[in-house]
Computed example of a mutant assay.
Amino acid sequence: MSRRHPIISITGSSGAGTTSVKKTFENIFRRENVNAAYIEGDAFHRYNREDMRRKMVEEAERGNKHFSHFSPDTNLFEELEKTFRDYSETGTGTTRHYVHDEEEARLYDTRPGNFTEWSRLPEESDLLFYEGLHGAVVTEKVNIAQHADLKIGVVPVMNLEWIQKLHRDRASRGYTTEAVTDTILRRMPDYVNYIIPQFSETDINFQRVPTVDTSNPFIARWIPTPDESMVVIRLKNPRGIDFPYLLSMIQGAFMSRANSIVIHGSKLDLAMQLILTPMIMQLMDRKRRTL
């Protein structure tokens, strides 16, 4: 953690909705004139798309049916922690970009499924913003969580997470339902060991809960809409949070525990704006006092 060079980390599983949360942060940064440097979790995968496929085949032939993008074996945890640590100490660090599709391939002049070259983050940024799978991971070798000043977990209930992943991967990546199901099953041990524990490290969790039947996510025809959802917002340390103000500003909100507020799904962006903007500005005020 660093007063001079703060880090915000958004963590969630594949299909959890971290990209949507990132957009809310970008709106806050734009409105409050915060100059953020960005890094993506995909940039710290160990293998490009072709090598990962080949490695999965090799591992399957050895009897390993659970080789996944979630594990330390397939990610550069040490390099990610070093980037966090370097930024907290110096205000810069090293990252790269994973090229997902043809549109990005034209932008970065490399084929989809590959990485750009490593490069330094822009100088003179106000804070570092991370969005990905491992922004609060802790293992025997690394403790990435300790370097982030504000850690956010995006954690839809599991069936909803699977529905979102199924629809995204089929629509944007052309995968079959069977292929996505195989991926979910293959990732499960690493999901339990490396994704879920992070949500005990986060400062705030946003958990979307559908109010429609999602009993069998593998046959769901639609993703439950915000109007068909509630969101449980858990704050690790509720001290200083003006809950009466939030309840008055967010129609239909109620407290379920002393550190948890429940809102209608359509009010998520408003709730994030109300909760996160003061926290971001507090980081900026603390930064300015050290300069």
Rank of each mutant, 00 (worst) to 15 (best):
A271I: 08
L268R: 01
T290G: 09
S172V: 15
S256G: 03
R53L: 13
T225V: 13
R4V: 08
G17N: 03
M279R: 14
N75R: 09
K151H: 05
V155W: 01
S88K: 03
M279C: 03
L270P: 02
E140N: 12
E103R: 00
K55N: 15
V142H: 08
F70G: 01
M279Q: 13
R234G: 12
H147S: 10
T183P: 01
H97P: 00
F44M: 02
R173V: 10
I219V: 14
A43M: 08
K165Q: 11
R96E: 05
S13G: 05
R111W: 14
D109I: 09
E178F: 14
F25K: 03
T139V: 13
D242P: 01
T290E: 15
P244S: 02
P6H: 11
F206Q: 04
E40W: 07
T176N: 00
T181I: 08
R168P: 01
V231H: 03
G12P: 02
F29V: 09
E201I: 09
R221S: 11
I195N: 04
S125F: 07
P210R: 10
T11M: 05
S13W: 06
Y108Q: 04
A271R: 02
E59G: 02
T177A: 01
E32K: 15
V154Y: 03
V57Y: 14
